[in-house]
């Protein structure tokens, strides 16, 4: 079980969260009309072995989406921040 540091609530069990998505993906602007751009955003992933920036949702807590940096090989967690406070 992962223990995830929520910037709002502190260190909490993985069971309070749901995994969201790769946080390096940038959702295209609403005005974007190129299906290729949307295809890459919706379907394509880097899926790295090692350090991974990812979104988690503190769904049974403060309901904030947080950005967690985690190693996908060792599950080591390096830190987290509130997504809304991360530079866009």
């Amino acid at each position: 079980m992962l223990r995830i540091p929520c910037p709002v609530c502190g260190l909490r069990d993985e069971t309070e969260f749901t995994y969201g998505a790769d946080a390096t993906l940038r959702r295209p602007d609403m005005e974007e009309t190129d299906p290729g751009v949307w295809h890459d955003y919706v379907f394509i992933r880097d899926n790295p072995q090692g350090r991974h920036k990812e979104y988690w949702h503190h769904v049974s807590g403060c309901r904030q989406w947080i950005l967690v940096e985690r190693d996908t090989l060792t599950h080591e967690i390096f830190g987290s921040s509130l997504v809304r406070e991360v530079a866009a």
Partner: peptide, 13 residues
């Protein structure tokens, strides 16, 4: 709800 929160907190801040 989760989807709405996701969009509002990530892409549509």
């Amino acid at each position: 709800l989760a989807r709405a929160e996701y969009l509002l907190q990530t892409a549509w801040r």
